[in-house]
Design a binder for these strands. Structure first.
Lengths: 260, 260
DNA sequence: CGCGAGCTTGAGGCGATTCAACTGTCGTGG
DNA sequence: CCACGACAGTTGAATCGCCTCAAGCTCGCG
């Protein structure tokens, strides 16, 4: 099973592009094969700050594999993660550097695909497909910020963790990176803590609790949501609504669905 | 002193427009006088949800007086306030209703000025002044969301309150609505609680503490920051940085400055 | 006057933090 | 080959910040 997910992760771009077509109404040229992809993509190693020359700030990059985040380091050296950037998410450098304190950081080895290579159209601001794409990127980014504000606002640690896991599930599912109810989550508990505003120790305790209650399974970088409906109730996560916002790509019959 | 502030609040638009000129590079036509203003402005009473017909979503409204917020009501009936909207802030309806759950709400009687009435230029997307204005509105809105995420992330209740008050001060100062170190704050402690993710009771205790330590004064809808530098250290609030982002309008010599 | 909205204060309890120690798993180098 | 350190995860005990529940206060207003 693990091998299957990894293969999905690295190879299948169709669901990702299908998701773009469904949500942004953008047609993608022929998807590049694996060899082409590796040449076209930008690669970052874990821990590197993502930068682009100022002249290129208008570009739209999409994450093909790996995870990144937006973060800020406080004066005391504590890190606040504003937003996790997962496969299928856009990286909009123009939006990123309005403020020197906030930076984009690769959390794992990262592969970024420049949309210029795969989208038809003149990529001018006037081109409708390109504008739809940029608008979609902005919309999803903003939605993510509000969701995170909701998590940090009135939720307990227990609810925050459950909510974040459901969030990850929905996003990765939309781009075909969920196998059944399991998906790869290459984040440390410290990263989760820095995002959720709780301590590493407490994240661990909450995860233990979720495991003992049979709600999730978690081992070696993979998470399984065993009872998503129960999790959604705990976290007040609106499964319906999420589906509207991020429409998954069209699936074949009998594929692995999240049967709730 | 109170009367003076109220006068400032209702009458003087020059600092507000000066702030726009400094930050967005947008020239304003002749500022309307008070009578004109009342006719031009949109008025909302406290508690009303702000709506605009869908066809008008592209418009930019600026708050002339009163406060509003972006909020969401959770399933349990708890309110999360994402963002306070103060005089000088923009209301971008296009950005607001990408999601049915999040609404704009007037917290006090509200007066909104449509920028079409005061900005030169064709207000087409292609007009550079109009584009700068829209970009400025988006930038400040986004910055506010990140600031609030920072508050909710790793700060204690004590730090959150101090940080929010400094934030209000900087914003209102930029549009000339601070008299010395005092400004009008027509928000209830419950609203602060709903924004800061802590309970009403605890907000009250924190305010008591700040008062007893001689850091703030607070009475009848007015706040005074008595020792802003001490507050800034408590809250890790970057006074320098804030000044860069929101440039106050040009001041006469010997005006009330925040001497830190 | 009575009422409601907003503010204030106390007592008790729980959730999350802090500090600390221990485990297991890597990759590296003696 | 094992020793070693670095890193991620795990667990316990004590402490504290914040919440809950509850009561009383002070206004402004019909």
């Amino acid at each position: 099973m693990t091998r299957q997910i990894i293969a999905t992760q690295q190879a299948c771009l169709e669901p990702l592009f299908g998701c773009l077509a469904a949500n942004a109404g953008v047609a993608v040229k022929a998807a590049p094969n694996l060899w082409q992809l590796d040449v076209i993509c930008k690669h970052y190693s874990a821990g590197l700050r993502l930068r682009e020359p100022a002249i290129d700030t208008g570009r739209l990059l999409i994450v093909v594999s790996g995870w990144a985040c937006e973060q800020r380091i406080s004066a005391e050296g504590r890190r606040q993660i504003f937003n996790f950037i997962a496969p299928g998410d856009f990286i909009d450098f123009q939006a990123a550097d309005d403020n020197g304190e906030r930076v984009l950081m690769a959390l794992t080895p990262l592969k970024l695909l420049d949309m210029r290579h795969v989208v038809d159209g003149e990529r001018a601001a006037s081109d409708p497909a390109w504008a739809r794409l940029a608008a979609y990127a902005q919309r999803s980014h903003k939605r993510r910020l509000y969701d995170h504000l909701t998590r940090l606002g009135h939720k307990s640690a227990y609810e925050r963790v459950a909510h974040l896991l459901l969030d990850f599930h929905a996003r990765l599912d939309a781009v075909g990176m969920v196998d059944g109810r399991r998906f790869a989550l290459p984040l440390t508990q410290e990263m989760l803590a820095d995002a959720l505003g709780i301590t590493l120790v407490h994240v661990n305790r909450v995860l233990q609790q979720l495991r003992q209650q049979g709600l999730i399974e978690l081992a070696s970088g993979f998470v399984g949501l065993l009872r998503p409906k129960a999790l959604a109730e705990i976290a007040e996560f609106d499964l319906e609504c999420e589906d509207h916002v991020v429409r998954p790509y069209p699936r074949p019959e009998n594929s692995h669905q999240l049967s709730i």
